[in-house]
Design a protein around this nucleic acid. Structure first.
Lengths: 332, 332
DNA sequence: CGCACTGCGGAAAGCGCTTTCCAGCGCATG
DNA sequence: CATGCGCTGGAAAGCGCTTTCCGCAGTGCG
């Protein structure tokens, strides 16, 4: 067989150079089984390893120990700042635990999502973080339980299920916060731009809002800037609307763009997530803040702590008032 | 040894269920060596595999074949839209080739960067995409050649070296475009906000600009929004400046914020990259556009095409004029 | 009708590592 | 001074897969 050119130094070679056995070399470098070899040996081995620029063959280690150092992160699209923020948080923690993160970009394709889950299982990923899933129903459950049955852990960010750990942002409370804020400002006729109705995130945010104030109109978009823009355009035909609540910042930014194009400066806008862009648009966006980076970090921690599964961790949502929301113009 | 609980079905079991040998099962599922087993066997094996929900053990495959299906992507920070855009492009292509992408977030720490490179080598990653590196000098070269000597390929995005493939955005030409645009508008006294001077990207963009117009002032920031804001604040003390060229959009957005805070509406701003945010700030940002997603895709393609190493692929930079650049106010 | 040849499935040898024994040694104790 | 115990290093058995040989048919030709 045409074996790959050079496979790099092996542990065997390190052991030979150090004049010890393979087992000892492994023990030194891996510090396993509670057994620490004599320090003289330790030095010889580490020296040899350094000299050879030895780097352990990760796949071989995985195979032998049936333990892997990669975790998967499933996102809709890493270019979406929402997911990018979660990813950084997760990566920081992964880094602290000497783990690497395999990012699976589903491009919002459910088929791809299941496929990636299988591949993550194939890799024997230690865990998978579900940051965005196209499935609200339980059709992902089989894939997921296959994954856990192979020894992997699963944590979902957002409301995905209850068979595993969950980081639950307070979407409902955030929706309430938005409604309350708008009501306080005197708005009574508010349009809401939602995302795909299959998303639990959507129903929670909307549910929270509706529990305080009945939306005057609802338009469904696809959670992107363009979607928000289009939805806003249609919603704004109703001139009685004094405010719009967009279920995420991307759509809120689109709404702002629509408002600008229409020359309407009398409509308040509230978003959700508090992405970095929120402070740079004009007017600066009033929004419901989620600490996404922290959520990513928490998710990673949850999955690495070898605790019983099924816990839920709440992530708070807070109101951040900026210039895009203003008191309803007093009747002339 | 306390082997991990359940390791999932093995090829051996599939073979047994199908009533064929391990070798045959492998050949069927992997289609290897130009040898395709008889279709009757193929069916038996695929059926058995499906029935067992078999998923190949990737580490074992890597070990046996010394071939891996993961590629590494080295970025400063995935939350930076610049890198996120590159990542999406790379992931799309990876996906088409059935590869997974291991994202290494260096947090701009050179130590981490080398460490990740070693780990990527340990994983026997098929290739690594260097999207952002803290090193301009050749101090990364040893790590990189260790990587290539283990059979991995390397492609750099931006000007990183010449020992491997490179996707070279036309930073110099982009700098020229910015200068020409500003000159055409009548600006002669332009401040430039650069990034860390060690970055090749910085010297190229600045070089291009300077080849057309000598900057009236230069301030160094750290390539972030806040850095750009601070640099702009200091630059703007010089009231003679009629325009600012920020070497990337993040800093340009910071500059816009500074301008807003200072109530200065008479200063033109030009950025670089054309991140999504550019259209949503006010005024919309005039910038030099790079097709980041395409660059990421190209990089991945380059690294997968098994061609001789050392090629360079140019990525064009184009001027996108928006509202943030305007003619210099005619002398009263 | 026999022989060489092609083709296809199976046995087996690893890939590089972890981990379980097992053997040997030194020490303390009876 | 002999026996036993604890500790440490080494030999070896896999982990699950790919791939090279082999051997056995089945075919075509002499």
């Amino acid at each position: 067989m045409p074996r790959a050119t050079s496979t790099g130094p092996t542990l065997q070679q390190v052991a030979a150079l150090a004049g010890v056995s393979l087992a000892t070399a492994s023990r030194v470098l891996h510090g396993s089984g509670g057994r620490t070899p004599a320090s003289a040996l330790v030095e010889k081995v580490t020296d040899a390893a350094a000299q050879l620029r030895y780097v352990a063959h990760a796949p071989a280690q995985s195979l032998a120990s049936s333990r892997s150092t990669v975790v998967g992160l499933l996102v809709h699209d890493i270019a979406d700042p929402y997911f990018a923020a979660i990813a950084t948080g997760a990566m920081r923690v992964a880094r602290e635990h000497d783990l690497m993160v395999l990012v699976a970009n589903t491009f919002r394709d459910p088929g791809l999502e299941m496929d990636y889950l299988a591949r993550l299982r194939a890799q024997r990923a230690r865990a998978v973080l579900l940051a965005g899933s196209a499935f609200t129903d339980s059709s992902l459950t089989p894939s997921l339980s296959e994954f856990t049955s192979t020894g992997g852990r699963v944590v979902a960010i957002g409301t995905h299920g209850d068979a595993f750990d969950t980081i639950a942002p307070d979407n409902y409370g955030g929706g309430q916060l938005a409604a309350t804020h708008l009501a306080d400002l005197g708005h009574t006729t508010v349009g809401v731009i939602t995302g795909p109705s299959t998303l639990a995130t959507v129903s929670n945010r909307l549910g929270g809002f509706s529990s305080i104030m009945e939306p005057a109109a609802v338009a469904e978009a696809d959670f992107t800037r363009e979607g928000g823009r289009a939805a806003a355009m249609s919603l704004l035909q109703d001139r009685s609307l004094t405010a719009i609540f967009a279920l995420n910042d991307l759509m809120a930014v689109g709404t702002l763009a629509a408002l600008r194009d229409l020359g309407r400066h009398d409509v308040s806008v509230v978003g959700f997530d508090d992405l970095p862009v929120a402070v740079d648009v004009t007017p600066a966006l009033t929004t419901i803040r989620l600490d996404l980076t922290d959520m990513g970090a928490k998710a990673m921690e949850l999955v690495l702590a070898n605790l019983p599964t099924g816990r839920t961790m709440e992530a708070p949502a807070t109101l951040v008032v900026r210039a895009s929301s203003m008191p309803v113009r007093p009747p002339r």
